[in-house]
């Protein structure tokens, strides 16, 4: 779980966890700050790697509410600080403001981590499965995520078009050669490549073709890979 949120977990926040625990015991009605946010992360962490669990909109909303509450409470306290002339109680108020602020930051961080990690998984789906999201995955996404996916898709396509229609999603690592030299073993006739070029594959001719296009023809025994 820590991997998802990141390493920032300083000593101060540890102290305040403890304080939190204490407040919780004192006033059982009050929910522990940050628990829901942590649940969010935990839920994502529990799901299998690279799978996307259903979007937990309820919790996200609850966390947002919590942030809002904390913010309001902090604002009230700040107002109190300004109005009170007695500086002796200032120290306590300052402590609780600081504590709430950290809790709020924490919640925010969890929210960002949750969404960021989901987006990462979504991105890997684009690279592995292509531009169309399978129905079962689509049902687990939020509306904004679908929107993001679509815009990412467009950006990627535009970028690949700039590279003369080079399909970047085919290789996980850049291949050593994008084109390979092949020799035609039988009369195949015209073959249309993905970029619309027609190549006449006649027996005993030799061509340079994109690696991706030839693989299935090599398997069919139409072509043979040769070295220059």
């Amino acid at each position: 779980m820590r991997a998802l949120i990141g390493p920032k977990e300083n000593q101060a926040s540890q102290v305040y966890y403890r304080t939190l625990w204490w407040t919780d015991v004192q006033r059982p009605s009050l929910k522990m700050y940050g628990r829901r946010a942590t649940d969010l992360i935990r839920g994502l962490d529990r799901a299998a790697e690279n799978s996307i669990p259903p979007y937990n909109g309820e919790t996200v909303r609850a966390v947002c509410e919590e942030i809002k509450d904390i913010f309001e409470a902090n604002q009230q306290d700040t107002g109190r600080l300004q109005s009170q002339a007695d500086t002796s109680s200032h120290q306590n108020i300052l402590h609780s403001i600081h504590f709430r602020h950290i809790a709020m930051e924490r919640n925010k961080r969890c929210l960002v981590a949750y969404h960021y990690n989901r987006a990462e998984r979504l991105r890997s789906i684009r690279w592995n499965l292509g531009g169309i999201i399978p129905r079962e995955i689509r049902s687990t996404l939020s509306e904004k995520e679908v929107e993001w996916f679509n815009s990412y898709n467009t950006e990627l396509t535009n970028y690949m078009m700039e590279l003369d229609g080079l399909n970047l999603t085919v290789h996980q690592r850049p291949p050593k050669e994008h084109f390979i030299h092949v020799r035609v073993l039988l009369d195949y006739g015209d073959y249309e490549t993905e970029d619309g070029e027609t190549i006449h594959l006649k027996k005993y001719t030799r061509h340079v073709l994109p690696r991706t296009e030839c693989e299935h023809l090599i398997r069919q025994g139409v072509l043979e890979h040769v070295h220059v």
Binding site: H178, F179, H181, T205, R206, H207, V208, V228
Partner: peptide, 16 residues
């Protein structure tokens, strides 16, 4: 010639 074409990624079809 094929060696040179290979160096510069010039596409070709060779017929005998």
């Amino acid at each position: 010639l094929l060696h040179l074409f290979n160096c510069d990624y010039i596409l070709y079809s060779l017929t005998i």
